[in-house]
Design a protein around this nucleic acid. Structure first.
Lengths: 137, 137
DNA sequence: CATATAATGAAACTTTGTTGCATTTACTTT
DNA sequence: AAAGTAAATGCAACAAAGTTTCATTATATG
């Protein structure tokens, strides 16, 4: 789906920043952090606006958080059926400890028997290792 | 095991900061972040020393990282058999999205078929939800 | 096209984490 | 037990990451 269409679908006003940011995610094929976005988009966009853009994208179900042991929070495109009321980003993530990149894997999170006294909303899972590219290098 | 004993076992010099920090972890029963430690220990210990303490504890296999969607990195006590050469912290974690606390669960990480072209070192898993205490409140 | 509402940009600030260096402390060896 | 060495500490300065406030500008809707 295209940027403009995606924004409308999620009830977000179309602005220059949002369109550009969304395009980055649509073409990236991996999770992007605030810092990465900032360096990709150069000086054209305000730091603070970028933070706010990411937050509203997450809130509205366009992006979901991808995090790892470094404490860096990245974001990645959600699947079509995510929206404000339900994020269903129930797939495994991969984090390369060499290049630091993170990707969504097309792999569902396995079932488990979690303690009954905990109210579970969602489960997050990352496999840490070395990606294809870094294995060659 | 006691603080002094644990330090010796992991080839760490016994210092006031390390002993105190270890005691906190031994009694906490949950993961603690740098900020939490700082407020628990008051002004007695240097911020930087605390960072360095946590890092060396992790490196030596005394603590392992516990992280969540907020980007806060916490640490939690490792089991007995962890050391410099092998961390085997292969259990599921729980993160309460209300109070922000994180705990280790006594639950192994389920097996999966990960893509063969990725070199996997370890898998991290967090269940997000509301803890027992916060459910009552 | 006027208007209400939302998004932006800029400045200031807070929090979090790191680096370099001089001083102090812990452990080893004698 | 004293000396020597290697490691840990404390401090200052810095760097990075994230937040808040508020005035200005832009978007979408009637």
């Amino acid at each position: 789906m295209e940027a403009t269409e995606l924004l409308k679908k999620h009830n977000l006003r179309k602005t220059a920043t949002r369109t550009e940011v969304l395009k980055e995610y649509l073409s990236a094929g991996k999770a992007l952090s605030h810092a990465e976005l900032e360096s990709k988009l150069g000086e054209h966009f305000d730091r603070v606006t970028l933070y706010r853009t990411l937050n509203s994208f997450e809130e509205k179900g366009l992006l979901h958080k991808v995090y790892d042991e470094t404490g860096t929070v990245r974001f990645s495109l959600c699947s079509d059926h995510c929206d404000v009321s339900s994020h269903e980003d129930d797939h495994v993530h991969f984090h390369c400890t060499k290049c630091g990149n993170s990707y969504c894997l097309d792999l569902p999170i396995p079932e488990m028997n979690l303690p009954k006294d905990l109210m579970i909303n969602d489960v997050y899972m990352v496999a840490n290792g070395i990606c294809k590219t870094c294995q060659r290098a």
